[in-house]
Amino acid sequence: MPKLLPALLLLTMSGASFASERALRFSINDSWAMPMVRIENGQAVEGILVDLHQRLAAKVGRQAEMLLMPRLRVQQALEAGEIDVRCYVSPNWVNSGHYRYIWSLPFMTQRDVLAGVTPERLQPEQLLNERLGTVLGFTYPRLQPLFASKQIQREDARTQHQVLLKLSARRYRYAISNELSLHWFNRQQAPEQKLHSLSEVAAEPIACIIRDAQDVPTMALLRAMVQMKQAGEFDAIVARYR
């Protein structure tokens, strides 16, 4: 028994060290909706991002703390070092560099589509004097010249789900949606009420940015993402919500 004491002491100390490591702080944009995230009482409770954050934190032996905040607050929190990991972001969406953060490999592609209430092949440039459903604060580089010239009028809603609800209610005839959200929305609709993808507007590489600091297992997180990509774990998470 005395010979076991050093080993038991080491295990106890390791367990205490593990328990003392704080949770990793992941940002959640409050304008996201299912299948990205479902928010209840100010908490992220399910969705692609919840699964991704929890899996990624578990890979490095941490808990995931998901911080819900407005999109503009996310930018401020990044600059202040208040977030450890921001996932589901494209380099094309970030206006300024974050020297304290390191980009992961892209783990998926987000496809934005022009959605409509009737099936037709149509490009945004063919629209004239139409109101187009968009998400408040989101940028659409391809469409910006059309908004600036007033060829199309932008009509914002707070979340992607609200944009699609207004389209379904015929508040306008066309909207921009990411493909995943459109598929999720249509799952809840009767066949005659389903919305239609008319054309692809943009395809963006999606990655995470991870804070490079001593209290964050930055390299371990980056390696975990490579392993998850190679093992098909990202595809499996997304497939659950298609």
Rank of each mutant, 00 (worst) to 15 (best):
L5G: 03
L5P: 05
P6A: 04
A7T: 13
L8D: 05
L8Y: 10
L11C: 12
L11D: 01
A16D: 06
R22Y: 10
A23P: 07
L24G: 00
I28P: 00
P35W: 02
M36G: 10
M36C: 03
R38T: 12
R38G: 06
R38K: 13
I39M: 03
E40S: 12
E40F: 07
N41C: 00
A44Y: 02
V45I: 12
E46S: 15
G47N: 08
D51N: 10
Q54L: 02
Q54F: 00
A57E: 06
A57V: 02
K59F: 08
R62T: 03
L67K: 11
L68N: 06
L68C: 03
M69T: 09
M69V: 08
P70T: 05
L72Q: 15
V74M: 11
Q75K: 11
L78T: 07
E79F: 07
A80D: 14
R86P: 01
R86Y: 12
C87F: 08
C87G: 07
V89A: 02
S90M: 03
S90T: 09
P91Y: 10
N92F: 15
W93L: 11
W93D: 15
S96H: 15
H98C: 09
H98S: 12
Y99A: 14
Y101C: 03
Y101G: 03
I102G: 00
I102C: 10
L105C: 02
P106S: 09
Q110D: 15
D112R: 12
D112P: 00
V113D: 02
L114V: 04
L114Y: 06
G116N: 03
T118R: 11
E120G: 03
R121N: 14
L122A: 00
Q123E: 14
P124Q: 07
P124T: 02
Q126G: 13
L127T: 01
N129A: 13
R131C: 09
T134A: 13
Y140L: 05
Y140I: 01
P141Y: 05
Q151N: 05
Q153E: 14
R154I: 00
R154G: 01
R158I: 14
R158V: 15
R158Q: 13
H161P: 00
Q162C: 02
V163D: 06
L167Y: 04
R170E: 15
R171A: 11
R171I: 07
Y172L: 06
Y172E: 07
Y174I: 00
Y174C: 01
A175G: 04
S177L: 00
W184P: 00
F185L: 06
Q189T: 08
Q193L: 11
Q193E: 15
K194M: 12
H196A: 01
S197T: 09
S199T: 02
S199W: 00
I210W: 01
D212W: 13
Q214H: 12
T218N: 03
A220F: 05
L221M: 11
L221W: 07
R223I: 08
M225L: 09
M225H: 04
V226R: 10
K229L: 10
F234A: 07
A239F: 03
A239Q: 14
